[in-house]
Design a protein around this nucleic acid. Structure first.
Lengths: 139, 139
DNA sequence: TAATATTGTTTGATATTCAAGATATATGAT
DNA sequence: ATCATATATCTTGAATATCAAACAATATTA
C-alpha cells in the first residue's frame, strides 16, 4: 500500500467519523442537519450572499433558498437586500441564530480538545499548518 | 484566537470542503450521495452487517435498510444471511458494485494526490500519522 | 423456560436535494 | 440608449434521505 493509498483511507475514515459525530450532535439538538451546516457557515461570516453560502455548503442555490427559508421562519437568520446589486441577498444570523451557533460551536471546540489531548504541541501545530495549506490550495 | 479555536475553524473548513468536493463528484456520477457513501464503506470491508454499516455511516439501521435495498435493486450489493446468527445480514459488493467502488476510489486518490502535491514528504508522513491517531482514539 | 436483549425491517412523517425553468437585475456591445 | 447576454435568486416537481417508534425474528441470560 502506497502512502497516498493509506492517506486516502485515513481521510475517508476521518470524514466519516466527523460526519457521524456531527449527525449525532445535531440529532440531539433542535436543529436539522442542513440548518446546522448553514448556521456553522453563517457564524463565521458576518454577511454572505446566497451563492457564496451555497458554495460553502456544496449544494445548489435552489437548495440553499429552501434552507434559508426555514432558518428565517425559525428566526435564526435574516435576508437583507443590497443597494449596490438589487439581485443579491445578504444572509446573516439573528441573535437567536448566534446563540444556536455558539452552542453548536462549543461542541466543536470539545471535539477539537478531545483530538488535541492525544497530540503533542508540535503535532498540533503541524496538523493545523497542514490543514491550512490544504484548505487554501485544494478546496 | 487560541490554537484550538484556529484548529476548530480549519477542521470545519476542511470538512465542508471535502463534503462539497464529494457532492460534486457524486452529482456527476450515476450514484446518489448515500449510495456512494455506502459503497465507500463496503469497498473497504469484505463483508459487514447492517448495524456495523449503519455505524460507519453514522445513520440509523432503518436508513441503512433503505440504502441497501436500493443498492440491491441496482445490483451493486447483496445481502447474505449467516448460519451462526440468523438475524444477521452480511452485506457485500457485487462485481458491478466493486467496479463502482474502484471508479469512485480513483477520484479520492486524485484528491489525495492533489493534497500531497503541495506538502513535503515529512509533512505527509506527519499528517498521516496524526490522522491515524485521531481516527483510532477519537472516532 | 421465561424474561430480556439484539438485529434488522417496516411505517409514517419530515427533511433534503436536484435539475430545469422563471424572474429580476446587471453588464457589455453596438 | 437598446438589445443581447450574464448573473443571482427563487420556484416547481419529483426523487431521495432521514428519523423515531413500532414490529418481527432470533439470541442470550437468569
Amino acid at each position: 500500500m502506497t502512502i497516498n493509498e493509506e492517506l486516502t483511507h485515513e481521510l475517508l475514515a476521518f470524514f466519516n467519523g466527523f460526519s457521524s459525530w456531527e449527525n449525532s450532535i445535531v440529532r440531539s439538538s433542535e436543529l436539522t442537519v442542513s440548518e446546522a451546516h448553514a448556521i456553522e457557515v453563517l457564524g463565521e461570516h458576518e454577511k454572505i450572499n446566497m451563492k457564496g453560502l451555497a458554495q460553502k455548503l456544496g449544494v445548489t442555490t435552489g437548495t440553499t433558498t429552501v434552507t434559508v427559508d426555514r432558518l428565517e421562519k425559525k428566526n435564526f437568520a435574516r435576508r437583507e437586500s443590497t443597494k449596490e446589486d438589487r439581485r443579491v441577498n445578504l444572509i446573516s444570523l439573528t441573535d437567536l441564530g448566534k446563540k444556536a451557533f455558539e452552542e453548536h460551536h462549543d461542541f466543536h471546540m470539545h471535539l477539537t480538545e478531545q483530538m488535541t489531548s492525544i497530540l503533542s504541541d508540535d503535532e498540533i501545530k503541524q496538523f493545523l499548518n497542514t490543514l491550512k495549506k490544504i484548505n487554501a490550495e485544494t478546496f
